[in-house]
Write a protein that binds this DNA or RNA. Structure first.
Lengths: 232, 232
DNA sequence: TCATGATTTTTGTTATAACAAAATTATGAA
DNA sequence: TTCATAATTTTGTTATAACAAAAATCATGA
C-alpha cells in the first residue's frame, strides 16, 4: 500500500524509513528545493505536522534540523520562515561551495570510469535539451545530478552531506530566481571542460572547471537578485 | 541561583538559555571534548536524560544532533556510541578542515587588528607554558582559542559553525591520543608564522601557516593512532 | 490615521505514557 | 564449551497534554 490513491494529502506511509522525523525532513526539504514556499513564508510546527499527518515531535525535529542547516531561519523566538534574499549569505555559501566542491572534485577526479563519463555526457545532453524547451526545473535537477555524480567519486560521506546542505541552503532562498538565472544555457561550457578533464585524468583541470561553474552561477544569481531587489 | 551548591549533579538551571535541548547538547559536547567517555561508550537516551535531569525529548534531540554532526555514531538502530578510532574519517575531516579553515583564514587575515595580534601572542605564550608543565588540557584549549580567534575575523557565521563541528568530530574520537600527540611543542612554529603573516598583511602566508599546522597535527595524530591500534 | 496598551490566540517546548522493535540475557541441545 | 533459540529487558520513537511565552488581534485614545 505504497500509493496515494486519493491524492488528497501526503502520507507517512509513502516512506520506507520507519522514522517520521526523516519523512518530515525530506518532505519539507523537497518542497523547499522546489520553491513551494515563498521567502518569508512561516512554518509553524503544528501546521507542518498537520500537513504531513504526523505528530508535533517529528515536525519539530525536522524544522529545527533545517534551521540548523541554514535552509530555514528563525526571525523570532517562535517564528521560523523561509529565508529572504540575502547577498551576504549567498556569498558565504558560494565561498564554502568553492572550497568543498573543489575538494571533492579534485579528490575524486582520478576515479572516473568510462561509465561515469558516459553518464555525465548524457546528463549534459538532457540539460541542454531542457534549457532549449524552457523546462528549467528539469534542467536544474539534472544539473545537480551532474555535480553530485562527480562529487560522489571521492567517497567522503560527510563531505558530501555538508555539500548537500549548502545546495539546499541556496535553493531555498533563491529558487524563484532560477528562471532568469538559467536562461542563458548556463554551465554548458564548464561542464564540457570538466568532462574533458576527467577523460584526461587531470584533477586540477576538473576542479578549475567546476569552480568556474560555481562562480558563473554565483554571478548570475547575484545579478538576478540585485535586479529583483531594486525592482521592489 | 546560578550555583551548584551541592555539587552532586548537573542541573539545567545552570544555563541561561531556556532550551533544555541546547543545555543537553552543550553538556554532552563538552564532555565529549574533554574525553569523558571512551570510544565505544554507549549513550542511551534515558541515561543521558537522567544524568542531566531532563526529559527524554531534549536528550534525544541533543544526541541526534551530535550523530548528525558526526560527533557520535549509530552502530545499530538503537545504539549510539562514541566513535572509535577511524583513520579514514580522520583523513576526511582533515581535508575538510584544510579547505574550510584555509578559507576562513584567508578571508579574515586582512582584518586583524593590533589587539588581535596581541591576543594571539598572549595565547601562544600560554600554550608554550602549558606544554612545558604538561598541562595538555589547557594547551589544547588555548590552541583551539588561537585558531578560532583567527577564523572569527572573516565574519562568516555558518562557515564558523561548520568548522566547529569538524573540531568536535575529531575531538570526540581522538581525545585520548592528545597527550602523546601534544608532547613535542606541536604548532609553535606554525603559530608564530601565522602571526607574522597577519602583521605583514599577507593572507596567503597566514593561510599557509595554518594549513601547515593542520597537516602537522594530522600526521602526529595519525602516527599516534597507528601505534595505538598496533599495540592492541 | 496612527500609535499604544490590553486581550486573545497561537506557538515552541517539555515530560510522559504507550508501543514496537532491538538488544540482552537465559536456556537448551549438541 | 559453543551455538542457536526463546524469554526478558531495554530502548528509540511518537502522540499528547500542559504550560509559559510570544504573536496577533482588538480596543482605545489622540
Amino acid at each position: 500500500m505504497n500509493e496515494n490513491t486519493t491524492g488528497e494529502e501526503l502520507s507517512a506511509s509513502d516512506l520506507q524509513s520507519g522514522r517520521l522525523s526523516d519523512f518530515a525532513y525530506s518532505s519539507i526539504k523537497e518542497q523547499l528545493a522546489r520553491g513551494a514556499y515563498k521567502p518569508g513564508h512561516k512554518l509553524p510546527i503544528r501546521s507542518v505536522a498537520e500537513m504531513l499527518n504526523v505528530g508535533a515531535t517529528p515536525a519539530r525535529e525536522a524544522i529545527n534540523r533545517l534551521v540548523f542547516e541554514g535552509a530555514l531561519v528563525m526571525v523570532g523566538p517562535k517564528t521560523v520562515i523561509v529565508p529572504h534574499l540575502d547577498l551576504a549569505a549567498l556569498y558565504e555559501v558560494t565561498q564554502m561551495r568553492l572550497a568543498l566542491e573543489g575538494l571533492a572534485t579534485e579528490k575524486g577526479a582520478l576515479r572516473a570510469t568510462n561509465d561515469i563519463v558516459d553518464k555525465l555526457l548524457a546528463l549534459q545532453e538532457k540539460i541542454t535539451l531542457s534549457l532549449d524547451e524552457k523546462r528549467y526545473g528539469d534542467a536544474l535537477h539534472d544539473n545537480k545530478e551532474f555535480h553530485f555524480t562527480i562529487y560522489r567519486l571521492c567517497e567522503m560521506p560527510h563531505l558530501l552531506s555538508t555539500i548537500e546542505a549548502l545546495w539546499l541552503r541556496v535553493g531555498a532562498s533563491f529558487h524563484d530566481l532560477y528562471p532568469e538565472f538559467a536562461e542563458a544555457k548556463y554551465g554548458v561550457h564548464n561542464h564540457l571542460a570538466a568532462i574533458e578533464g576527467l577523460v584526461d585524468k587531470d584533477p586540477s583541470a576538473v576542479r578549475a572547471a567546476m569552480e568556474n561553474d560555481i562562480r558563473d552561477g554565483y554571478r548570475r544569481l547575484k545579478k538576478a537578485a540585485q535586479q529583483r531587489l531594486k525592482r521592489q
